[in-house]
Amino acid sequence: MLDAVEVVTTVVVGLMVGVEFSVAFVINRILDALPGDAGQLGRSHGGRMLGAVMPVWYIGSVVLCAVWAVAGRHHEGTGLVVAGAALLMVSVIMSILLLVPINNRGKTWTPENRPEDWREQMNRWDRWHYVRVAVLIGAFALLVAALA
């Protein structure tokens, strides 16, 4: 049972890190390079789509880490799992306080109603997202180390 929890947790968190990494370093760069309003429309759509999925994925990852930590409390590496879960909680708190408010505004924007400073707001979201990606990579690395 513990082996299954370890594998599922590592895969779920690893996939989440991959998605968030690709948003930061691939998708948003592609969208920003599109002509006209296409990039802003793409970011709005992405904000709606991922904004619906990511809360479940983030909270689910924390819950899986908690299950792993409890089920493996007598095994070596549990401290690494707890540290990884703590970093995931940091990413959830960052998301709620810093990224979600910007995303909630951005996902409603159209070329007709977006504010003049929409690019600055997206740049601020990007900067916080880079930090969040670094935190997520740290969490994932701790979980992988706990398997060793």
Rank of each mutant, 00 (worst) to 15 (best):
77 G>F: 12
6 E>N: 14
73 R>K: 03
14 G>N: 03
142 L>C: 15
12 V>N: 00
146 A>F: 04
81 V>A: 10
76 E>V: 06
18 G>S: 04
76 E>G: 15
1 M>P: 08
82 V>F: 05
130 Y>A: 04
120 E>M: 10
123 N>Y: 02
103 N>I: 12
18 G>C: 08
81 V>L: 07
46 G>A: 13
69 A>M: 05
108 T>I: 03
60 G>Q: 05
35 P>H: 13
71 A>F: 02
90 V>A: 12
16 M>N: 11
68 W>S: 07
56 V>N: 04
55 P>C: 10
124 R>P: 11
136 L>H: 07
66 A>G: 15
38 A>T: 07
43 R>E: 13
6 E>W: 08
23 V>C: 04
93 I>V: 15
70 V>A: 13
35 P>G: 13
103 N>S: 14
69 A>C: 08
86 A>K: 00
129 H>V: 02
41 L>C: 14
49 M>H: 14
14 G>L: 06
76 E>R: 05
2 L>E: 00
96 I>K: 00
82 V>Y: 06
129 H>M: 10
53 V>I: 06
85 A>E: 01
54 M>P: 04
120 E>D: 15
63 V>R: 00
36 G>F: 06
142 L>M: 14
89 M>T: 03
145 A>M: 12
59 I>M: 09
64 L>R: 00
38 A>R: 12
90 V>G: 09
51 G>A: 04
65 C>N: 09
10 T>D: 08
123 N>Q: 13
71 A>I: 02
145 A>Q: 09
125 W>R: 03
135 V>G: 12
22 S>H: 07
50 L>E: 03
51 G>R: 04
23 V>L: 14
90 V>K: 00
59 I>E: 05
22 S>T: 14
102 I>F: 00
110 T>Y: 02
56 V>D: 01
64 L>S: 06
124 R>K: 13
145 A>W: 10
61 S>C: 13
46 G>E: 08
47 G>R: 03
9 T>R: 05
56 V>Y: 04
4 A>P: 05
26 V>G: 06
30 I>A: 09
37 D>N: 15
64 L>D: 02
7 V>K: 01
60 G>K: 08
85 A>H: 02
13 V>K: 01
65 C>M: 14
19 V>A: 10
98 L>G: 14
9 T>L: 07
62 V>E: 00
97 L>I: 04
57 W>V: 14
41 L>Y: 00
84 G>V: 06
117 D>E: 03
15 L>P: 03
5 V>L: 15
130 Y>Q: 01
113 N>G: 09
106 G>C: 09
50 L>K: 02
141 A>K: 06
121 Q>G: 15
69 A>W: 11
97 L>T: 08
96 I>A: 09
74 H>L: 13
17 V>P: 12
43 R>P: 14
79 G>M: 10
100 V>T: 13
102 I>H: 03
100 V>G: 04
11 V>W: 05
93 I>G: 08
46 G>L: 09
6 E>T: 07
29 R>E: 00
67 V>P: 14
95 S>E: 01
94 M>W: 02
59 I>F: 15
133 V>Y: 03
79 G>W: 05
140 F>R: 00
44 S>L: 02
